[in-house]
Design a protein around this nucleic acid. Structure first.
Length: 275
DNA sequence: GGCCAGGAAAAAG
DNA sequence: CTTTTTCATGGC
């Protein structure tokens, strides 16, 4: 076991494969806060405070079961990292982001948040998401939950305009209307990655890149390689024949890494962002 | 298939 | 202070 469960917290034992900063700041989630004790992370209607002090990591939460799943404790990261280390250009990225974990987020939350994230900067993405939660999420103790689909369906287009989503306001409004009428997110768990991607791309504002983020972070389908501007840069550093075609680059990497593509992408992305 | 508008704000110059 | 970039997509 790589963790111990206590009454009101979880202690992480396998600390070399768990770094909360790397995990939260490698671009897979937006609802978290830096604290003096560590980080607070919010997922759906759950909250966890992660305390990091002298080599001990403690996760304080009322929803231990939820976060044991969320932090992907059932995955063997030693095995993944040693498998990926055979690729020489990945080795420094794996060492740099050795505590990254791929979180198991909620698909609906990922759909909304990654539509907002497109061609956008992280501080603004976080502000927009916070405003949606504050206005339409259930108030729980000292925070607001991510709104349920029913609540999201009550949001007028004007609200998305007023919180300055920019051109993404229509995407959000139209996508929410399509959910549980044209596209059923619950059906995607049992689909092949390819079929699930096709379903997601029916949604307004969801193209290949956003779909792949939802597949990886919402459905833990790790045979995808979300390719954004940073990954395009990484590709052009690794390869001499430069390309700007994100879909071709994504397909190139998934062919190499297969089921470990998502992990490889996170290591590369984090290294590119931080250096 | 390639090009570019649409929005706002962070980041860079 | 002004310009460029920002975890892209849809429509022409």
């Amino acid at each position: 076991m790589n963790y111990i469960e206590y009454d009101d917290y979880i202690e992480v034992l396998d600390t070399k494969n768990f770094n909360i900063k790397q995990t939260l700041e490698c671009g897979q989630v937006f609802r978290f806060k830096v604290q003096d004790f560590g980080y607070t992370v919010y997922s759906l209607n759950h909250k966890a405070d992660i305390y990091c002090q002298n080599n001990t990591i403690k996760i304080f939460t009322k929803d231990k079961k939820y976060f044991i799943n969320y932090f992907d404790f059932c995955t063997n990261y030693d095995k993944i990292k040693s498998s990926l280390s055979v690729y020489h250009y990945l080795k420094p990225a794996i060492e740099f982001g050795s505590g990254i974990r791929i979180l198991r987020s909620n698909p609906l939350e990922m759909v909304i948040e990654f539509i907002i994230s497109q061609n956008n900067n992280i501080p603004r993405i976080k502000t927009i998401i916070e405003k949606i939660c504050e206005a339409y999420g259930e108030k729980i103790e000292d925070f607001y939950a991510f709104p349920t689909l029913e609540k999201l369906k009550s949001i007028p287009l004007e609200f998305f305009k007023s919180i300055k989503c920019g051109y993404r306001d229509k995407y959000l409004f139209e996508t929410i209307a399509m959910l549980n009428s044209e596209v059923f997110l619950d059906d995607l768990y049992d689909m092949s990655t390819e079929d699930a991607r096709k379903e997601l791309m029916k949604l307004k504002g969801v193209g290949r890149k956003v779909a792949d983020c939802i597949l990886l972070f919402g459905y833990h389908k790790t045979d995808v390689f979300p390719t954004d501007t940073w990954i395009v840069q990484a590709y052009n550093k690794i390869n001499k024949n430069c390309s700007n075609d994100a879909i071709k680059i994504s397909n190139y990497f998934t062919k190499i890494f297969g089921e470990l593509s998502g992990y490889a992408q996170q290591y590369l992305f984090y290294q590119m962002r931080e250096n």
